[in-house]
């Protein structure tokens, strides 16, 4: 299969479907017509260099930002045609793990995980307590329930945020750069957690990252994005064996290639010889 063009192999049972997605911030074009399908019950990776708008995709799927053109459907519902109330109802079916955890700093670990339950579940406090302890047990931090976010390491904060993201038993969890800045042990813990939770809770997972090796080790399917386009897609093995020059540069971490080392600039000689800007 040629990973740069194939779309027919995307599983039919799709939870999130992006079609003709365009998005710009000011004059900068982030997406220039991309199609992405997120398969239900699978781990899908969105790979790409920094600044290509991978996090933007998660914010678009969550309805926080609105695309310039194109559609995003979540379980058959166009996210951006929903009013405020239905959109909030839809978000209860999505969990999101932010890059730095985004825990509420004035609440303890326990209260952070309990927050969505107390807001939405409408269940008695003793049940909230049991669910929170179960979620914290799943991420290995039941003993840290009374700590405040500033007392946690980066890896622990992300695990608490993960417990919070799954507290309402969502259909899908979106991970924004979950491995950035993690030591090898924390990274291994997170990788194991994402894979295990996806299987045991029947989740659909989207992982946005540029940590290729780690992500491909757990992803069922991956998209490689750059310059506002999908430049490659396929299973982990297909991505690894891709012959696309861009995908190869990205996988091998080569400093120069389709993504140039030098930022766009006038001719070097002209500038040194005193030609004006």
């Amino acid at each position: 299969m040629n990973p740069t063009t194939a779309t027919k192999d995307v599983p039919e049972d799709v939870l999130v479907r992006c079609r003709g997605l365009h998005f710009r911030q000011g004059q900068r074009v982030i997406y220039n017509g991309i199609d992405i399908d997120i398969a239900r019950g699978k781990v899908t990776a969105i790979l790409g260099p920094s600044g290509t708008g991978k996090t933007t995709l998660l914010r678009l799927i969550g309805g926080q930002w609105r695309p310039s053109a194109g559609t995003i459907e979540f379980d058959g519902t166009d996210v951006h045609k929903l009013g405020r109330k239905p959109l909030y109802d839809l978000r209860k079916r999505m969990g999101m793990l932010f890059q730095n955890g985004a825990l509420l700093t004035d609440l303890t670990v326990f209260e952070n995980v309990a927050y969505p339950l107390r807001e939405h579940a409408g269940i008695p406090e003793n049940l909230v307590r049991d669910i929170v302890l179960m979620k914290l047990q799943a991420v290995g931090l039941r003993g840290a329930r009374d700590l405040y976010p500033e007392e946690l390491s980066g890896g622990m904060a992300r695990r608490v945020a993960l417990a919070r993201a799954i507290s309402l038993d969502p259909d899908m969890v979106m991970y924004d750069e979950p491995f950035t800045g993690q030591d090898p042990i924390s990274m291994a813990v997170l990788i194991k957690l994402i894979r295990t939770l996806n299987q045991s809770l029947g989740l659909t997972s989207i992982i946005v990252s540029h940590d290729i090796k780690e992500v491909l080790s757990i992803a069922d399917y991956a998209y490689v994005i750059s310059g506002g386009k999908v430049l490659g897609q396929g299973t982990a093995d297909e991505i690894r064996s891709s012959e696309s020059a861009f995908v190869r540069q990205f996988l091998n971490g080569e400093p120069d290639g389709p993504i140039a080392f030098h930022y766009k600039a006038p001719a070097y000689a002209d500038e040194l010889m005193g030609a004006k800007k």
């Binding site: 969550g62 978000r91 999505m94 969990g95 932010f98 730095n100 985004a102 509420l104 969505p116 807001e119």
Partner: peptide
């Protein structure tokens, strides 16, 4: 620190 965004995503 994305706390406000996180609240939005928690509906």
């Amino acid at each position: 620190t994305d706390q406000l965004s996180a609240m939005e995503m928690m509906a």
